[in-house]
Amino acid sequence: MDPHASRYAKQILFHGIGAEGQVRLGQASVLVAGCGALGTALVEGLVRAGVGRVRLVDRDFVDLSNLQRQVLFDEDDVARGLPKAVAAANKLGRINHEVTVEPLVTDIGPDNVLALFQGMDLVLDGLDNFETRFLLNDASLETGIPWIYAGCLGAHGQTMPVIPGQTACLRCLIESPPDPGTADTCDTAGIIQPILSAITALQLVNAFKLLVGRGDEIEPVLTLVDVWDNSHRKLRLGTAQERQSCPACGLGQRDWLKGERVARSSVLCGRNAVQISPAERLRLSLDDLATRLAPVGTVLQNAFLLRLEPTGTDYQITLFPDGRAIIKGTEDPVVARSVYARYVGA
């Protein structure tokens, strides 16, 4: 057997995939939005299965607190301060060199989300925040490209496929994400790895069905799983007629895509950190910044980012060339903006 057929032999044997399904997987392109706990498990599944092309987008870098649940990362990635998309792509290339992996270290926003969707057959939610999920929902409805929502907290997780024109969308389910500070996060409630395995498994199965041309076998439900209680429930999502009143898929509103609902700072789940994004994407010289910041504290620099630990503070500021900063040591966006202004300049 040739190496290609041998690699996928067990999957081709499975009745739901087969030889034709494997060919279709190899021709498919998938965007994985976010490369944390959900995203690493998703992208590993896609790459092992032989999906042709994977675009992997993440704004963050690998931290020691990620290793408890984020597969693909290791202590060496932490020591090197690698961006998650880059660290993941390094591993994925060793798992399956046949797959084209396109790692992108950037924040997903209204200005770039449509470009990220371009050429993709499917988008998988590997995110850690509500805002970007509602943005994905808008972009999916706008482009007609399906996406699969997922979220996890504690031992609980949820997932729901969104196929524009066929199923309910995220706003059919929930009109508005909770206000900041009103919902639990991974910091307040914690999270355990098994729920991520359970939820990403369900996402991947729906992804396979869609990519091999068996989308009609996808159940249009919100699935709710709690691995601690061993509970599993499905919520049926109503009729097309009922969806006519949905602001997004019924009435055509694109509040996140228009930027009307997108803030410029966001709390990073589980990290005791806030990301600050300037109004425009910048092109900073990390070398110049390193020189300028050297007297301020300890500076670590690599090709992708610069990290500053200002002397006498508990903050750690990680700066990216596009002007974004991750301020570690606070969950208050106001404090973070102040720190940003002090060391980076506003």
Binding site: G36, G39, F130, C152, P177, A183
Partner: peptide, 10 residues
Amino acid sequence: IEIVTLVGGG
């Protein structure tokens, strides 16, 4: 009746 809220982690 089940009242369902979204979870945002991941």
